[in-house]
Design a protein around this nucleic acid. Structure first.
Lengths: 185, 185
DNA sequence: TCAAGCATGTAACCAGTTACATGATTGC
DNA sequence: GCAATCATGTAACTGGTTACATGCTTGA
């Protein structure tokens, strides 16, 4: 389990409300750890009662009040302990791969449109990542040496970019294979 | 949810017992859909009572009897219906990325050993995939044109290989970044 | 005799998903 | 007047993980 820890990291980078966290999980941190607002509110409540985070009511003009959370000492400790734990190999869930193998017992040609849609979604993601990179990580000459936090954020983003590029290349391979099978039949 | 469907695909490729399926989920199909034997037995029971699969008791010499499952007509239908459903974008869970960003609030140098262990696990996986490719997908000249099922299995395996190569390259990037930060501090 | 492999399961728990619910303000 | 954004939640369900449990055979 790591949602708690993803939230701790996000709140250390910047304190915020449950709502704000939910939006960050739609971008940025959500690129490598997805979570819905329901899940976030539930976990925030637990983390608060465990003393990992502190809540502070913030009044806003022309908007509902929000509860701004920040990381407490116990939360920092919990994060440190978690960072020291060995990394377990992640368990894979790749639905598209199951469908591709399943297509042998259905109609391979029918998958083509779906794969194309899927490919478009990944193209979009890559575009978004690259825009984020240009925006948040300008070349060193203009910006000077970045701090550790930024360097680490950048290397994670580069991982996302590499993943999307690899995926797009593979999807082209998949499409070529499906076309070949469709024309053969 | 796709465990049911992954099992259907696996049983269509080759009927087998729960135990055999569990072993396939440790190799082959498990490379892109992980499942433990507990989960598999539970789902098999449900699938049998839903009429998706048929069970047949098989006596074996010097071994406990096994229940061999094969896909029933209703199971084939269920698979077809599922293949026609649109593919939802997968939700990501990348624990290592969370840890890397978390390292900004701990000791980046301490992560190096963990990332190295992680890298080794992926090297091993790549080796396994490549061995599987050599074994199961010999060059066309020697084997003749493969059927659709094999072609599809091969393109999925190529995806796994591409993923592992991309991951290894990224982990080198991560390690270089962590070393740079460690030497700077 | 002891570990490894074959074979099948139950029970309790935890995490994630889906659906539902409320209420305010701003801009079109 | 209506959609969008801000803001926070509950409840029911489903799926996945962990721990526990049994018993047989073969080969070192």
């Amino acid at each position: 389990m790591a949602l708690e820890h993803a939230i701790l990291v996000s709140l250390l980078e910047q304190p915020g409300s449950g709502y704000e966290l939910a939006r960050r999980f739609e971008r940025s941190i959500g690129y490598f750890w997805a979570a819905t607002h329901q899940q976030i509110y539930r976990v925030l409540k637990r983390m608060e009662s465990d003393g990992w985070i502190d809540a502070r009511a913030v009044a806003q003009q022309a908007r509902p009040d929000k509860k701004e959370y920040s990381v407490a000492a116990a939360g920092r400790d919990a994060l440190s302990r978690w960072l020291d734990e060995p990394i377990e190999p992640e368990s894979v869930r790749h639905e598209l791969a199951v469908k591709i193998r399943g297509a042998a017992f259905g109609d391979p040609a029918a998958l083509i449109r779906e794969v194309e849609r899927y490919r478009e979604a990944h193209t979009e993601r890559l575009t978004r990542y690259l825009a984020g990179e240009r925006r948040d990580f300008p070349p060193v000459e203009t910006a000077g040496a970045p701090d550790a936090g930024r360097e680490l954020q950048h290397v994670v983003l580069r991982g996302g970019i590499a993943y999307e590029r690899m995926t797009l290349a593979w999807l082209d391979d998949v499409l070529a294979t499906l076309h070949r099978l469709a024309s053969r039949a």
